[in-house]
């Protein structure tokens, strides 16, 4: 198994944390992983992205040139990375923040998910990333859904642990899409 994933959006959407949840889940299932954040001038203007690799093998560069999967949470994020997605890869895009018509222009296979809207209806917009991870698991079987629960307890601060059931409900919603 070798998945190269770029998660991209605005600061505050939980992009970097979602990457950590994926990486920690990978470790919990005994795989190797790297998590490489944007830092420096790339972060100006509020954009945030991270490169996450999950592999059974030793991982070379942590920097992804051609992702298998792009999780795009904003239009600028889609525009920045859509052209480099592998031919065999796909994009999971938040279609409550990016117009569906625009998503049809992407050359890769696109799964439009109204993640932010649905997350808002479920209680908090921050759960949008869990919906996206749910969809990622559905399309790849990258790890077991229940592994994410363990990862959430590791990644989230103690005072947020009470939210794990709601986060897992969001993950389940993504698994259904």
């Amino acid at each position: 198994m070798n998945y190269e994933i770029i998660l991209a959006g605005f600061g505050g959407q939980g992009i970097l944390s979602a990457g950590r949840i994926i990486s920690v889940s990978a470790i919990l299932e005994g795989r190797n992983t790297t998590w490489f954040p944007s830092y420096g001038p790339e972060m100006r203007g509020g954009t945030a992205n991270c490169h996450v690799i999950v592999s059974d093998d030793e991982i070379g560069s942590p920097i992804i040139n051609n992702p298998d999967i792009l999780i795009a949470m904003t239009l600028p994020a889609l525009e920045k990375f859509e052209k480099v997605v592998r031919n065999t890869g796909f994009i999971i895009a938040d279609s409550s923040l990016i117009e569906e018509e625009r998503l049809k222009e992407a050359k890769s296979r696109v799964f439009p998910i109204k993640a932010t809207q649905i997350a808002g209806e479920m209680g908090h917009k921050a759960y949008a990333m869990l919906i996206m991870i749910g969809k990622l698991i559905k399309e790849t079987n990258i790890f077991k859904p229940e592994t994410v629960e363990k990862a959430l307890y590791e990644v989230l601060k103690q005072e947020l642990h009470k939210l794990v059931p709601e986060e897992m409900a969001a993950l389940s919603a993504g698994l259904e899409m």
């Binding site: 990978a26 998590w35 991982i59």
Partner: peptide, 10 residues
């Protein structure tokens, strides 16, 4: 280097 310092890994 900055990349090795900033990245996370198992």
């Amino acid at each position: 280097d900055g990349a090795l310092g900033q990245m996370m890994e198992n």
